[in-house]
Structure formats: structure tokens, C-alpha cells
Design a protein around this nucleic acid. Structure first.
Ligand SMILES: [Mn+2]
Ligand SMILES: [Mn+2]
Ligand SMILES: [Mn+2]
Ligand SMILES: [Mn+2]
Lengths: 139, 139
DNA sequence: ACTCGAAATTAGCCACGGCTAATTTAGTTG
DNA sequence: CAACTAAATTAGCCGTGGCTAATTTCGAGT
């Protein structure tokens, strides 16, 4: 039985990279450094650096000048953050918040939603979807 | 008319310091370096450093070895973050999230709530307070 | 096979916000 | 008023996650 790896919280930056990489793979079929950089509006150099770090952490496999694939661990984390992003977006949308504001706020909030909070907001969002009368009361 | 100062977003760290300083002043009447350090669970050295930075940014007035007071700008920011903290806490409480989880998540989320999102969650929270039937549906 | 431009990497820099260890200050106490 | 202690400060360090500039690699196209 190998020594247990330390839990070690993932940073917001790591989550943002993984989320975007998964999104690129899902839409374009692959995620190159230049695509990630453009999509996150940061420099290619910064992306190269982070991608090498994520490789070292076992969240993706990277071959220099070639390309990358998410590992199972990396994809799990990516799907997880994507889920939080989607839920918060749906929730704020139901509250009538402007799309630009939603995008901005969700990008920050998504990194601080633990599973119980996720479930609670999820339940509330589902109720809200079924109660247009209540939604109307919020404007 | 003087040149407009750059908006320059306040960091989560700055907001946490200001929030805690205001809280200490409200409860103890003053906020010493040692109190802030204990309360935020960081070293006194780190607090000294930040307090001097906040002084330089005009958010508080600090006299070495003496003490500090929030400026009007600093107190405004402190009240603002405190308000976001309180609202999120009330909101998640209504959803039945565990207190420990609330404390943890709110401490992170509060820094990413812009005014429109604040208002939307506020409206929703008020509706929730008046509709125990809906609240019951969430458990 | 060579050349050329885009993509990627490296090197070196920076601000932020933490830390420990060593030192200084101020207030209390004998 | 001297000594002691708690509080505060300074000095020096570190990891994270950005940046630019310079260099290297790759893949087309001729
Ligand atoms: Mn994000
Ligand atoms: Mn996101
Ligand atoms: Mn906080
Ligand atoms: Mn707070």
C-alpha cells in the first residue's frame, strides 16, 4: 500500500486551465498551447509553464512541441469545475443577472463552491425552474 | 479637477484584512497587529507588512508601534465586503448548508460578487425568507 | 532539401502574499 | 529607573502565476 498523497487543494488557476483545456478538446478535438493562451487571454509562455507543471502533477500528459491529453485525474477535475461553472451560470441566469456579469462573477465564484453548497444551489435552481411565479417576483 | 485614480480591483487578501479590521474595531474598539494576525491565522510579520501597504494605499492610517484607524475609503470597502459576507451567509443558511461549510465557502465567494449579483441574491433571499414552503422543498 | 513563419520553449524578470528568525520598541513591574 | 516581556518591525526567504524578449522547433511550401 503506497503512501497516501496529500489532498492539496487545487488553485483557481489550475482549475481554470483544466476547464478550458477540456472545453477546447470537446470543441476542437485538441488543445494546443496557442489555443489555451488565446482562450484564457494570457501569454503562450505562461501556458507552456503551467502545462509542464500540470504534467508534473499528473493531471495531463504533455510532449514538448507535440501536444497534450488530460489524464483520468485531470479530466475528472476538469468535469468537476465545468459542472460548478454551469450550475452557477444557470442559477444566476434564473435570477435575471446580465450575461456579462454572470460570466465575470461565475469565473471567480466557481472555485469556492464545495459539494454541499453545490447540491444546495442545485436543488434551489431546480425549484426555481419549476416556479415561474417566484422568478417573476424577483425582478 | 485632479486626475482620476485608476479603479484597480482590490484583492481578496485586502478585502479580508479590511473586513477583519472593521470587525475587531467594532467588537474590541481597536485592531492591533497581534489581534489581526490571530484572527486571520497568519503571522504578525505578514500583518505588519500588509498594514503598511494599506496605509500607503490610503485605506487606513498607521503609526508604527502605535495603532491604526480606517480611513473613510477603507471603512467603506470594509462595510461593503462585510455586507457581501453577511448576505451570502444568510442565503446559504436558508438553503440548509452546514455552518462550517458556509463559513469556508463564503470566505472565498464573497470576493467575486458584483453589485448586480448581490442585488439578485438579496432579492431571492428575501423571497425565501417569506416562503417556508419553498424552503421545505429544498431539503 | 531549404526556407520561412507560426508555435513553442527558455531565460529572466516581477508583484503578491505568505513564512521564520533576528531585532527593536514600548509598557509594566519590581 | 532598570529589567523584563509582549508586541511590533525588519531582513531575507519562498511559491504562485503572470509578463517580455530571445531562441528553438516544427511543418509547409517551393
Ligand atoms: Mn474560474
Ligand atoms: Mn469557469
Ligand atoms: Mn474572504
Ligand atoms: Mn469574509
Amino acid at each position: 500500500m503506497p503512501a497516501k498523497t496529500i489532498p492539496s487543494r487545487n488553485s483557481a488557476a489550475v482549475e481554470d486551465y483544466l476547464e478550458r483545456i477540456l472545453e477546447l478538446i470537446n470543441t476542437k478535438g485538441y488543445a494546443r498551447v496557442v489555443d489555451i493562451a488565446t482562450s484564457l487571454a494570457i501569454s503562450q509562455a505562461s501556458v507552456t509553464n503551467m502545462v509542464q507543471r500540470l504534467d508534473g502533477e499528473g493531471l495531463l500528459q504533455y510532449e514538448k512541441y507535440r501536444g497534450l491529453v488530460l489524464t483520468t485525474a485531470g479530466e475528472t477535475l476538469a468535469r468537476n469545475i465545468a459542472r460548478r461553472h454551469q450550475l452557477l451560470t444557470d442559477f444566476l441566469k434564473l435570477l435575471g443577472v446580465d450575461d456579462r456579469v454572470i460570466e465575470h462573477d461565475v469565473e471567480g465564484m466557481e472555485h469556492h463552491i464545495s459539494p454541499p453548497t453545490l447540491r444546495a444551489i442545485e436543488a434551489l435552481t431546480n425549484q426555481l425552474k419549476r416556479r415561474p411565479s417566484l422568478r417573476a417576483r424577483l425582478k
